[in-house]
């Protein structure tokens, strides 16, 4: 009886991983090609930029905030990089740094509005999302920007046989994980997400925390955008559109709560890979192009649904029994 309960608790606790394995097995059965090493490395490669952005968004979600501007930041950063290199002939490194600087500028605007002007994160980033994309189309005259070989060759470069994008993805994930679990600032992010008022009372500088996370989110969105563009080689006007939702979905699928205070880097990585796995799996299974997004959305819905059931069940299971049966009267 007891062990049965424990098992169901264990299962519920690990729903993200279970779902991941389940999706993996199903696709593997229907399309053996899916299980090949090449396809697997491809999935991780393709999920790298969503994963990086998802980690950034997760920082924001940890404080119960939200950042809708990441799609526009991706676009702005990579378009700036492309324009700097193509039109102003700056060295590649300077172009990339320039793109990242633009991303950080948007992060700064977000942070300023949210911290100093006290505007809700949803409204702030909705504004910067619209304005950011508009600035991007204005810069590019809504034309596509081709990126030079120096950048695209980075995209195909490998380190020890592993594609550069994957290396960067893993590196960022590890740094983010260490940052969150092993530094004071990281722990304080969780504290602020749990209860901002108590955090303030405990002497934590909430403004500093919020500043850090919105800047980090913009930074990672910029990096993600450039990594993605290094693979595609071209930035069109719709680049990055809707990626904010993929990134949020990745974080939430990985167990990050929209209410703040809980979430892990490993979960977000898993979530990002899962989204990509579903998309690639559907391609491998040669599912109709128009049906693929329907199935993806359906699976994400089930994941969110299971997560909410799990949260409710866990709350019930962990609720304190006020009555001690051993002391019962007769």
């Amino acid at each position: 009886m007891r062990s049965k309960e424990d098992i169901s608790k264990l299962l519920l606790k690990n729903i993200p991983i279970l779902l991941f394995v389940l999706v993996f097995v199903i696709f593997g059965i229907f399309s053996p090609k899916f299980l090949s090493m090449a396809s697997f490395s491809n999935i991780i490669l393709n999920s790298s930029y969503v994963g990086i952005i998802g980690i950034g968004i997760m920082f924001v979600l940890l404080t119960a905030g939200i950042d809708l501007s990441v799609g526009s930041v991706m676009y702005l950063a990579s378009a700036s990089t492309g324009l700097l290199i193509a039109n102003y002939h700056v060295p590649t490194v300077v172009g990339v740094l320039g793109g990242i600087a633009v991303a950080l500028l948007v992060g700064l605007i977000n942070a300023f509005c949210i911290i100093k002007l006290e505007i809700l994160p949803f409204v702030t980033t909705l504004g910067t999302m619209t304005a950011g994309r508009a600035v991007g189309t204005w810069m590019t005259h809504s034309e596509s920007v081709n990126l030079p070989k120096t950048i695209t060759s980075l995209g195909s470069q490998k380190v020890l046989g592993i594609p550069m994008a994957i290396v960067l993805f893993l590196l960022i994930a590890v740094i983010a994980a260490v940052f969150l679990s092993k530094t004071q600032l990281g722990r304080q992010i969780y504290a602020v997400g749990n209860d901002p008022e108590e955090a303030r009372k405990a002497g934590i500088n909430n403004k500093k925390i919020l500043f850090t996370i919105y800047m980090l989110c913009a930074l990672l969105a910029g990096i993600g955008g450039i990594i993605s563009v290094a693979q595609i080689g071209i930035v069109n006007a719709a680049f990055g559109k809707g990626e904010e939702f993929n990134a949020i979905a990745a974080a939430v699928l990985g167990g990050t709560s929209l209410a703040g205070g809980s979430g892990k880097v490993s979960g977000t990585v898993l979530g990002a890979v899962m989204i990509q796995m579903i998309q690639s799996g559907l391609v491998y299974m040669q599912v109709d192009m128009y049906i693929q997004p329907l199935i993806s959305a359906g699976i994400i819905f089930i994941a969110v649904f299971l997560d909410s059931i799990r949260a409710r069940y866990m709350a019930k299971a962990e609720a304190r029994n006020i009555r001690n049966e051993n002391l019962a009267n007769g």
Partner: peptide
């Protein structure tokens, strides 16, 4: 004004309005 400028203003107006509300 161009389409882009309008969208830039759109984003800006939302922020100003939200700020005024605060």
């Amino acid at each position: 004004l161009s389409y882009y400028t309008i969208n830039i203003v759109k984003g800006f107006v939302i922020l100003v309005a939200a700020c005024l509300d605060v």
